[in-house]
Design a protein around this nucleic acid. Sequence first.
DNA 1: CGAAAAATTGCATTTTATTGCAATGTTGAT
DNA 2: ATCAACATTGCAATAAAATGCAATTTTTCG
Lengths: 253, 253
Amino acid sequence: MLIEERLEKEMKIIEENKTVTIESLAEFLSVSKDTIRRDLIKLEKKNVIRRIHGGAVLASKEALIFNYSERANQGNSIKEKIAEKTAKLVKDHSSVIFDSSTTVEAVIPKLNGKNLKGITNSLTHAILLAKNERTSVSVFPGKLNNEQLFLYGAETVDKIRQYHVDYTLLGVFAISENGLFIHTEEEGLVKRAMVQRGNKIIALADHTKIGTTGYFKVCSLDEIDILVTDKMPELKFVELLAQNNVDLVITDE
Amino acid sequence: MLIEERLEKEMKIIEENKTVTIESLAEFLSVSKDTIRRDLIKLEKKNVIRRIHGGAVLASKEALIFNYSERANQGNSIKEKIAEKTAKLVKDHSSVIFDSSTTVEAVIPKLNGKNLKGITNSLTHAILLAKNERTSVSVFPGKLNNEQLFLYGAETVDKIRQYHVDYTLLGVFAISENGLFIHTEEEGLVKRAMVQRGNKIIALADHTKIGTTGYFKVCSLDEIDILVTDKMPELKFVELLAQNNVDLVITDE
DNA sequence: CGAAAAATTGCATTTTATTGCAATGTTGAT
DNA sequence: ATCAACATTGCAATAAAATGCAATTTTTCG
């Protein structure tokens, strides 16, 4: 049986019964409990179930909140690797602004266990942050983008200006010698304000985004402190980063 | 049996009887009193019960609804009926403040199709509102309650004061001749500000909440305009509402 | 096609969680 | 104040979860 097929069967059973034991699933599907456990971990990562001692329950409310079609293809290893490295850069007991990108979102679960003050304009990020009980979360005000669930507008920008934090985590749409770019002004103005209010600016961008430009300029290269990416960029760009005092963190060794 | 299942059963029993002894729970569920004690500690941490010598009592009706019975009697509950009636009171093309109660949450899907400006301090409400494409949503800033995902604090209250809307939808914990009450100051201060900034205040309360009082006073009766509930209250209370110019809307006919 | 890389799976081992019991400390009704 | 009932704490037995490992299967390339 294909794994996907098995996961679907498991999901179906949990949906029908609201709860399930690992024992019963293992027996019903004729695989070991270990396999069931690993399956349930996968389902939990998609926020469709909640694991509990001895089994799992349906995560009805979570399911409502998170949009799975987008989130289903997790394990996007580039993003996960970047997230992993980034999480290590964030010291315990610090304050962090999280911008509303999906790369930044991937960082949040990796920060689990740290004592943080998290501030964000993304509703989904806020909910993920709230799962770490050691994190105190604040949310900026603003108009809500109904699709992507981030807050924006003058209110958001004004509020950001009242904060000052240790780190700003910035998801990047395009980065080049001309600076960092994003495709909408809406988000751009917010990101720009976030850059100005962070002590250490950490930009996250996979290699496909390096050397490209976009519509709205968020900031110039010298305004960021660290760039986390998956592959070593061209020498020319590496030198450019050095000239602008940007530390480069590469996930591939 | 899974622990979660046992906790649900315990909760159900407490819900029905308002109070319970450790002895009876231990016997009924065939586990030791020690286990019951530990379970009750868990439930107490979730703020749904209060432990007392020899047993436990229900913490508050509102807290109860937040967590457990919500899942159990989904469907045609009292809450749904109240939500249905409430939605009809909200005119198209109006602005609405939604407070963070689950009763108010139930109203949101029923507003689908209307052109609204929605403003809320609840992340889950905001996400539900965003599903209606004709609704523009704003979110108040503030500190996030990690359990129940609502925003609160001075920032929230300050921001509310900058708005003025056609309707405020208010979930109520207790209502009586003394006014409207909620069990935490955290939420109370926010609700109080919301009442002051709405043109028409619609309070939502099932019959069990009428004639009771709580810890923190949100406002007095004359500050609300409409009360939506499921059963006709005592004549005395109906008269009281009339004296305070509160319209009464009943779901049961 | 076919070899190398990656993923999957079950098993053994270590770590953590749950539970009941006993010893000791507290509470509260009379 | 007293004493029985209750609560708390530490402990040991058991069950489940996490981790590491090796065998097997599947996927990915040239």
